[in-house]
Structures are given as C-alpha cells and as structure tokens.
Design a protein around this nucleic acid. Sequence first.
DNA 1: TATATAAATGAAAATATTTTTCAATAATTA
DNA 2: TAATTATTGAAAAATATTTTCATTTATATA
Lengths: 287, 287
Amino acid sequence: MERTESNLNSCLPRIRSSFNDLTKTEQKTATYILENPSEVIHMTITELAEAAKNAEATVFRLCKKLGFSGYQELKIALAGDLYTPLESVYKEVSPSDSIKSMMNKIFFGINEGLQDTLKIVDEEAIEKAIQAITATRRIDVYASGGSAIIASDIEHRFMRFGISVRAYSDPHLQIASATLLQPGDLVIAVSHTGANRDVLDAVTMAKSNHVTTIAITSYIRSPLSQIADIALHGMGREINYRSEAMASRLVHLAIVDVLYIGSLLRQQDKIIENMNKVRKSIAKRKI
Amino acid sequence: MERTESNLNSCLPRIRSSFNDLTKTEQKTATYILENPSEVIHMTITELAEAAKNAEATVFRLCKKLGFSGYQELKIALAGDLYTPLESVYKEVSPSDSIKSMMNKIFFGINEGLQDTLKIVDEEAIEKAIQAITATRRIDVYASGGSAIIASDIEHRFMRFGISVRAYSDPHLQIASATLLQPGDLVIAVSHTGANRDVLDAVTMAKSNHVTTIAITSYIRSPLSQIADIALHGMGREINYRSEAMASRLVHLAIVDVLYIGSLLRQQDKIIENMNKVRKSIAKRKI
DNA sequence: TATATAAATGAAAATATTTTTCAATAATTA
DNA sequence: TAATTATTGAAAAATATTTTCATTTATATA
C-alpha cells in the first residue's frame, strides 16, 4: 500500500518504524539521525552524509523512503519532533525498581507508543477502513499468537453492530474462511510483525476473491501492509525488558477503538438500536 | 554551512517582538509568516518572497534581523514553534470530529486512564499479586464479555513462565474449574464492573477451596473486589461516546503487563537467590 | 525647495545545497 | 556459475541560498 504525503509530521517515529526496511547505509544515516537529532536539524545534506559516512544520494534516498519529499522536509519534521517532551526520558525496567517506579515506566512506554502512533497515523487509511467497516455485512479477522487477542477484541466489539464478525487464529480455518469469502466481505488481519506467513496466505487468498483487506501491524513496510488494501500502523515502541511485543498490542487495541468509535459515529441510528438490545441483555446478568 | 547560536524555539514570538523595528517590506514578509506559518515551513525563500510580494534579499535580511543565520534556521525554528502537543482538554468525541481529532481524544482518554491508575494504585496489592503468581503452579482465569480478552492475554502471557494457565469465559467451565482447584492454586478474575454474577460465583467457589484469588476490576467497591483476596483496580475513565468499557480494558491490560514484568523480575531474583544458596552450601562443605 | 546623505529595495551574480543520473559494485536468484 | 536485481557513490544538473551592487525611496539640512 502506498502512503499519502499529507501527514508527514514526524520524523523519529517514522525512522524507528521503518528501520528494518532500510538498507545498510541507509541505516547508518538513520542511526545518526536517531542519535543526533538536534545536530541534524542544523546540518546540510552534505554534512549529514559526511557525518554518517556515506553519499548525499543515500541520505536523499532515505528521506524519500521515509515518505518525505526531500531533505528539507525531513529536517522540518525533525524540528517538530524535538519539541516533543516525550522524546526525552525512556528507561528500562530493572529488578531494583519499586512497584511504583516499574508501573511508571511501563505506563509511560505505553503512552509513548500511543503518541508515536498519533504522529505517524495515516488518517486517510483510517477513514477508508471505517468506510469499509460500515459498508460490509461480514468481517473475518485473522491473527495469531499475541495478536489473537486483538482479533478477539475486534470480534467482540463489532459483533454489537449486528455484523457477522468472526476471528480466526487457526491457520487452517483462516485459509478455509478466506476461500469462502465473497466480494463485499471484509478481512482484517492483525500481526505485530506483519510477516506471519499463515496470515499473509489467508489475506492473499481473500484478495484473490476480491475482498477488501485491512492490515494492522507495527511496521509500515511489512509484507502484510504491502499487500493489504488498507494498512494501519501502531508504532509500539517496546519496554526493553524481554519485551514480548507488549506495548504494541495496546496500541493496536487503541486503533481498534478508533475504528469502532469511527464506525459508530458514521452509522449511529442503525447500530445504537442493536447496541441497546445487547446492553439490556447483559445488564440482566449483573447484580 | 555556518552554525548558529540562535535559540530555536522562538520564531513567531521573535517576529512579534521585533515587528516594529522591521522595514515596510520586511513587515510584509513577517506578516505573511505570522499568518501562514504552517505553509512557510514548506516554502523556499523564493516562494516566500513571491508570496509576500518582495525580493528574496528582503526575506533573507529579515531572517538575519531576527537573529537567525539564514532562511533555513528560521524555518527550523518555525517548525519547532508549530509543534502542538497532544490536546490537553479532554472532550467527548463527536460525529463532526476529524479522524485526527477523534484519535487525539481517544488516545488521550486512554492515557488519562493510565495516569489515574498510577495515582490510585495499591502498590501493596500489586506486590502481593506478583508474589502469588510467582509462587503458584496453576492459574485459572475467569472473565466474560469484554474482559475475556484480558483473560486470554493473561493466558498467553503467563504460559511462557511454564505455569499451567487457563482462561475460562464460559460460566459452566468457570464453576467446573473452580470446583476442582486446590490450595496453592491461583485464580485471577477480571471484570470491568466487578459485578458479573457468574464470575462472582466461580470466585466464591474457589475461595471455599482455600484458593488465593486476585480481582482486576474498574471499581474499588465492586462485589468482586470485596470478596477477592487481592483487589487490583484500573481507573478507566471512559470516552463518553456510548462507551462499552473501552479505555478500561486497555488499563487492565497494562496492569497485566505490570504483573507479568513484575513476576519476571521476581523470578530473576529467585534464580539469583537459588544460586546464592547453592554457593553457600558449597562453602559449608569446605569447612 | 533643492541637495546631500542614509536607508531600503530588488535584480542579478556568486555560492551553496539539493536532487537526479548513471555507472560501478554488491547481493540475490535461477 | 551466470544472470538479474538492488545498492551505492561520484558527478552532473537543477534549485535554493546568500551576496553584491545599482537604483530607488526616504530623511535631514541649508
């Protein structure tokens, strides 16, 4: 999926999110920028190239790859980043931390992930996703491993709309469901890495059936983002303690919230009726 | 290129304070910048000169006069001025909101929930919960509805510890599992309201089997919090659009992260402790 | 008011920076 | 291994910037 040029408002999160897709020399430059952002905003492309020990052309290609129109745009975005208070303090959790301190760091990391997501969000893609959701009668959700709970959440949430929503974490069921989909149906695929083979296969199958596909991943240039019709990214900077894609799943859930509320607002009348029904039934089970 | 010592974070204020000292044409340019800052950061000096209807040299002189080393420095400073931090006023999401604005509000609401949780957190309870988790060999997790995904997440996460963890969202299975639990086992019950009858029944049954119980809810005085041995609360202030416990489930997941990382760190302690024991035993043998 | 002086301005030249192109090299695939 | 593709940097081309300088405009003074 291609990116729009309209929302280029942040540089560092973008670099982090795309880092693995960069070439070796590009990574050298990217690292230099990540480590010396406040120097870079005063440097010419020639100076940066020299500092990062490669050619101007490489720096320029990096700019393009990150979605900027050129070096100037990157610098402008970087300057904006530098006044983010969040950029500053990020620490690793250590065994000697108090409970309070540990919680502080974990919660702060989550919030950072949310903030970064806000910066790199492709509003147009969110808009398209919401439109796709409000237009469909059936949603199949594919995910596995840690992302399976995101899929369950999507199932649980959108079910209230009265749409048929089903989450599949089993690869065979994913393919089976994808095979049976028809134009007008919708697939949402969730994967932290965006490189899960089973999910990719299922999405490919769905696409061959002319089904609209939405991807939710943490990496902009992941294979899943590439093949999906609509790609959404949560920038989940991770707490560095044996992180198991921790913050990212919270960020992905937050994106689900956005899709949910967005869809709700788009088709209030139809849905609110259903939701009230559901809420009343549930209330009976409560003391 | 020459370095500047100029303070970056002050282009617009600097223009305002120097405005009266500027010449007529300089003021024309200054006015244009004041009125279109977000355009200017993407313009070349030639474009700005044309837009403000005067020569490049004038624009350049303005830059110098304002204390910048050149046009680039002015733009960088301007980009810094322009950075708008996350909306601090929390409002309800409305259908007329843009995608960006909606996301801002939702993400901000989540962060507020996290911050509030930090404020009211019972560190002692967290500590006890972590101890209970690291001490047990079996965890059964009860939840239903929207909280079921929290339960799945707990299952998925703590499984990696090598403990037997099983999440039950089905009321019958919850009761069945609670009936079979034995002292030393652990129950974690998750419920947003803390008033789900089935979960309450299962927890009561578990307690009658002398099993330690941990509750994760959003309400301190909920029935579930009252009967559980250890009660954890996520303050999930909700986004006010027909919220179905939205932010709260993210906050609850964040609490799970805290328990997970906390347990991980404690186990590390335990390993070091064991190593010390071994070393001491060896020392004794040397007497 | 006319004139001298200083300040302001823009056109164009001189620099500097940026993009683009392209050939060489490295990596990958068949 | 050969063929193909991707990566890279040097250099050219295109743009952008700063500087210079002649001209214009304003200001002060006789």
